[in-house]
Design a protein around this nucleic acid. Structure first.
Lengths: 330, 330
DNA sequence: AATTCCAATGCAAACGTTTGCGGAAATATT
DNA sequence: AATATTTCCGCAAACGTTTGCATTGGAATT
C-alpha cells in the first residue's frame, strides 16, 4: 500500500510549505519551535523517511563508500571491511561491498556502478590480472576519490595503502633462518603480481646473504597448486626443510600436502606463513606467522580516504608493518 | 573537474530536445536511425553516463539488491553471495552487501539504508538476537520484497529459504551411529536460535531411538566456547566417542581442542560436521560432513525473490537438502 | 507615528531523467 | 488531389529534495 510519505504530503496536512517542512526536520533555526514540533510529530506518525534518490540528486553525491575486492572468501578482506565500516558508521556513511572474482571485466563494471551511483569514495584491491588502469582514471575524473589497498598498482602515483611487503618478507626470512634448517622452500603467489615481487624480494634479500642455505621457489596460482607442489616433492627433500608461504591460501594447500604425506612439523619441516592470523591457529601444530593485519590496513585506508577528500595533494603511498607471531611450527 | 555530461548538454550540442536524446540512447523506435547514431557518437565522445539518482528518482526503484548477513567471515555466506550475484548480474542488477555483526541495532540500520535507497529486494540472514520483526515489517510495507535465508525467523509466515535442518540433523545422527562409538557428544550453537533447535531435534529424533548410546549436548556461542568444552572434558570420556558439530565455527574450536589434547581421530574420537565443505578439508584427517551448500541456497533464494516480485502470493518456506560427504574422520 | 529589524514562512528554481501526448512533416493510400 | 497514415521529434510534467531569495507580520527602535 502506502504511498510513501513525502515532504509535500506533510506540508499539505499542516498547511505549510514544503520548504518549511524540510527545514523543520533538520532543526533549521529559521523555523519556529512550535512548528518544528508539529512537523516532527506528523513525520513520525506517517513514518516519513527521506527519499535518498532525491536527496542525492540534489546534493550530487551519496553517503555510501564502496569497497571492491577480488574475493570475499578468506579472512583478510573481512577484517579490512570491518575496520572501514566502523569508521564509516561513525560518520554516518555506509558501506557497499563489491567483488570482482579476479575478473578485470567485472572490476570495470563495478567501477561503473560506483560512478553511476556517485559513491562518496572507493576502496579497491585490484585483481591479479588488472593491468589497464583507464577505468580507474575515468572514475577519478568524476571526482570520486579512490584509495588502493593491499593489491595496489605496481606503478606508483596512486594513493595506496599496503603491507610493507618487502620488510615483512625480510622478517619472515630472518625467522626462517633462525630455525636452522638447511633447505628453504618459498611458496609464492602469481608471478605477475607486484605483491609477489615485493615479498619475494624482501625474502631473498635476506636469504641471499646466507650462502650456506639452499633456497628454492615455487610460484603457485592457488591452493591446489600449492598442494600439488608439496605432493610432488621427493621424500628426501622433506627433511631439514623450512617452508615459507606468502599467503593463507597457499598455506592451506601446503598443509594439506604435509598432512597427506605425514611429515612431522616442526621436526622434519618447519612452516612459516604471512597471514592475518585466522588460519594459522587451525592447523596442528599452529603455524607461526608474520602478521598482516587487514583491520589495521582498513583503519589506515580510511584516514587516507579522509585526507584525499580533504584535498591532500601529495599522493601518499602508505605502508603498514606487522610483527611476528610465534607458534610451534618452526 | 569535468562537469559530467548530461542529456541536456548532448541535446544542446546537437540541437535536439532532451527527450529525443534520451530515447535515442535506448534505441527507441520513434527516433531516426541517423539521429541515434549521432547521439550515441557524441555520448561516447563525452563519456556520457546516466545519473542513477535521477533515473531512480524517476522510476522509483534502483537496480540493486541488498544482502544482509551477520558476518562476512566464514565461507558459508560467501558462496551464497556468489550465487545471488551470478543471477543478479545476468539480469543487470547489482549486489550490495551489508553486515550486522550479530547486532539487531545495526540490522535495523541496514534495513533503513535499504529503504532509504529503495533497493530492488533484500536477502537477509537475521542475527542470533533478532526477535523484534517490526523493522522488517516496516520495510515490507514499503513494497520492498524480503527473502529470509539460512537464519530465518522462527515463526513462519515470512518467505524463507533455508537448509532442511531437521532432516540434515537426522542424517548426521545416522552416520554417527554407524560409526559404532558408544558415546555421542553434540556441539550445538546458541540455544536461542531456531536453527539450533531444528538441527538438534533432527539429531535427537534419531539418537533417541537407539537407547544403547549415551548422548550429551553442549551449547556453544562461538569457537572459543567449543574449544573450552573439549578442553574441559575428562580424559576417559575421550575414548569411543563420536562428536557432532553443527557448524564450521564450532568445528574449528573443537578440532583445536583435539589437536591440543592429542586425541587420535578417528581412532579414539570420530568427528562429523555440518558444513559448506571448505573447512573440513583443512583438518587432519579431513572431516566427514553433511553438506549445507550456500551456493545452492543462493540460487534458490534468488528464484524465490523473483517469484515474490512476480507477485506470487503463497508465502513459501523452501527447504534445501544436502548429502553426506565421507572423509576419514569417522 | 514612522522607521528599522527580526522572526517565521513561502516561492521557485534546480538536480537529471523518463514518458504521455501532441504536432509537423513526410509518405502512403484512396 | 485529398485524405489517412506513418515517422520523427519536442513540450512539459513529474519524481522528492534543498536552498537562495523574497515576503509577511509584528516587535523593537527612533
Amino acid at each position: 500500500m502506502k504511498s510513501q510519505a513525502t515532504l509535500k504530503k506533510i506540508a499539505e496536512h499542516l498547511n505549510l510549505s514544503i520548504s518549511t517542512v524540510s527545514r523543520a526536520l533538520k532543526d533549521h533555526p529559521d523555523v519556529a519551535g512550535e512548528t518544528i514540533r508539529r512537523v516532527k510529530d506528523l513525520a513520525n506518525l506517517l513514518n516519513y523517511e527521506p527519499n535518498a534518490f532525491a536527496v542525492n540528486l540534489r546534493q550530487k553525491h551519496s553517503n555510501i563508500y564502496a569497497i571492491i575486492v577480488p574475493e570475499l572468501a578468506g579472512f583478510f578482506y573481512n577484517s579490512f571491511i570491518d575496520a572501514v565500516e566502523e569508521e564509516a558508521q561513525q560518520r554516518g556513511y555506509n558501506i557497499m561491498v563489491l567483488q570482482t572474482r579476479e575478473d578485470p571485466a567485472i572490476e570495470e563494471n563495478n567501477l561503473k556502478l560506483c560512478r553511476y551511483n556517485h559513491v562518496a569514495g572507493i576502496f579497491v584491491a585490484i585483481t591479479r590480472y588488472t593491468n589497464d588502469f583507464t577505468p580507474f582514471l575515468k572514475t577519478m575524473d568524476t571526482e570520486i576519490p579512490i584509495v588502493f589497498f593491499d593489491k595496489v598498482p605496481e606503478e606508483s602515483g596512486f594513493p595506496s595503502v599496503s603491507i610493507a611487503d618487502e620488510e615483512m618478507g625480510a622478517l619472515a626470512a630472518e625467522k626462517i633462518l633462525k630455525s636452522g634448517k638447511s633447505k628453504v622452500l618459498a611458496i609464492l603467489g602469481n608471478q605477475a603480481l607486484s605483491i609477489t615481487h615485493r615479498r619475494e624480494a624482501g625474502f631473498k634479500s635476506v636469504t641471499e646473504k646466507n650462502t650456506h642455505i639452499s633456497l628454492s621457489c615455487a610460484y603457485c596460482e592457488n591452493e591446489t597448486q600449492a598442494f600439488d607442489t608439496i605432493m610432488k616433492m621427493p621424500a628426501e627433500s622433506l627433511k631439514d626443510l623450512a617452508v615459507f608461504c606468502m599467503s593463507d591460501e597457499l598455506l592451506c594447500g601446503v598443509m594439506q600436502g604435509f598432512y597427506e604425506r605425514k611429515v612431522s612439523i616442526p621436526g622434519d619441516v618447519g612452516v612459516l606463513a604471512m597471514s592475518n592470523g585466522f588460519f594459522p591457529r587451525l592447523f596442528n601444530p599452529p603455524i607461526s606467522y608474520v602478521e598482516t593485519s587487514g583491520y589495521q590496513l582498513g583503519k589506515l585506508s580510511f584516514t587516507c580516504m579522509v585526507d584525499l577528500i580533504g584535498g591532500v595533494e601529495y599522493l601518499s603511498e602508505v605502508m603498514l608493518r606487522g610483527g611476528y607471531i610465534e607458534n610451534s611450527s618452526l
